[in-house]
Design a protein around this nucleic acid. Structure first.
Lengths: 226, 226
DNA sequence: TCCATTGTCAAGCAGTTCCTTGAATATGAG
DNA sequence: CTCATATTCAAGGAACTGCTTGACAATGGA
């Protein structure tokens, strides 16, 4: 009788279905691939650019990107001899954020790992999205985007200046000295804005870092430009 | 100079941090563990109950649950000789939903796998959450929860009757015959509600299945009871 | 106390993943 | 056409994963 068979569902088919779901998790289940997704959350990048970013060989990076592509997390576009990879959709960005948050909330050792990578942040003043929105309206801050210029070009907070972190020390003079400076970067686990605040403090400038980075700002539907 | 070192971040520490994030994905990166999370999204369950549910040995199930626990996705509670596992938080439920959706949206083969497991759904009428809310208010439907009774006890749509799918055929008479019946179960990839609609159709009863299951209803902040 | 039930742990094998090296392919410039 | 650049593919070895079996630990009841 067909109904009683249907009750059980087919175990092999069920296994295959859930194995299918878990393919996506497997794709994210490698530190280097997670890092690639994190970088791609800022915008599309070429393979060797990504390889440099994650400190891996081009071959290995290409392999990881293929893995991500096969599980549908990233898509590609060819331009001349270069291949640009990007996240397949905003939903992937959300998935990555959800995973990062769950990891941060539920695994104690992550605090230790984050502290080891980020260093001591406790002396660095912060500002949240609401406050920053307010102060941009006031005109009482200058906002600087300290990611690299490709990332800035792919999208940035409206009104922000692009000053990649490596150039900041030489370009401090460009910043008006009667307002505070707010630096932002890729997100809560990016060190660029922290470094920027430290560099600015060394130059006796009053600086804050934005909590969260560009993807979080964008996800919250706040004003952006490209 | 400390600043230029900080610019690079420490590659080993960065690897460790992202390996830490990817631990969560690795935990979800196995079909049986994904299935466990899916079941646990309905409420807490004991180890051997879960083993039966996913058709695995108790030892293997216990091992998978330990893996999930180590990555912080599930938590436990002991009661007598039994150990009950549950999702660590609603955030985990959201993560699972996000992963499932990304998989469904971005990987073509998942449609095939889902169709193989679920069978042909095209003949089964459906109703969405808004419509159902409306019709519960009208009193023009009877809602039945066809999951097992533990799941019903852990939380169900307010006003729904508990009729586990295996009991439905014998209990059709309990249902008033002047209204339509809406069946729901664990979620979009659960066959129980589909089976229920087929059983009811065999008994010449007009039945629909709710799109999504209890977790989706709850996530949308609609009325639930325990 | 001893026993039954429930869950966890350890060893071991088959299969998979990750990274490296070196070769192959695709595009555009000259 | 030939060459340089950018990317992908294939082979191979070390390390890890998933499942089974059988032993061990924790709890509550008789």
């Amino acid at each position: 009788m067909s109904v009683s068979v249907a009750f059980m569902g087919d175990r092999a088919a069920k296994n295959a279905l859930f194995d299918g779901f878990s393919e996506v998790a497997k794709a994210l289940g490698n530190g280097r691939r997670a890092e690639l997704v994190d970088v791609l959350a800022q915008g599309e990048r070429s393979v060797d650019d990504l390889a440099t970013e994650i400190s891996q060989s081009v071959a290995n990076t290409s392999f990881h990107l293929r893995t991500l592509a096969q599980s549908g997390l990233v898509a590609t576009r060819r331009e001349g001899t270069r291949v640009y990879y990007r996240l397949a959709s905003d939903r992937v960005r959300e998935l990555w954020a959800a995973m990062r948050d769950v990891a941060a909330t539920h695994t104690a050792e992550l605090d230790v790992l984050a502290a080891a990578y980020l260093g001591d942040r406790s002396q660095l003043e912060t500002i949240d999205q609401d406050e920053l929105t307010q102060r941009i309206d006031d005109g009482s801050v200058v906002v600087i985007d300290v990611r690299n210029s490709t990332e800035y070009a792919a999208g940035h907070i409206t009104g922000a200046l692009s000053i990649p972190i490596e150039e900041l020390a030489q370009r401090v003079d460009e910043l008006a000295d009667d307002v505070e400076i707010v630096a932002y970067c890729r997100g809560p686990y990016c060190v660029f804005a922290d470094d920027a605040v430290r560099v600015l403090a060394d130059h006796d400038r009053s600086a804050l870092r934005l909590l969260g980075g560009f993807p979080e700002w964008q996800a919250d539907d706040r004003p952006t430009s490209t």
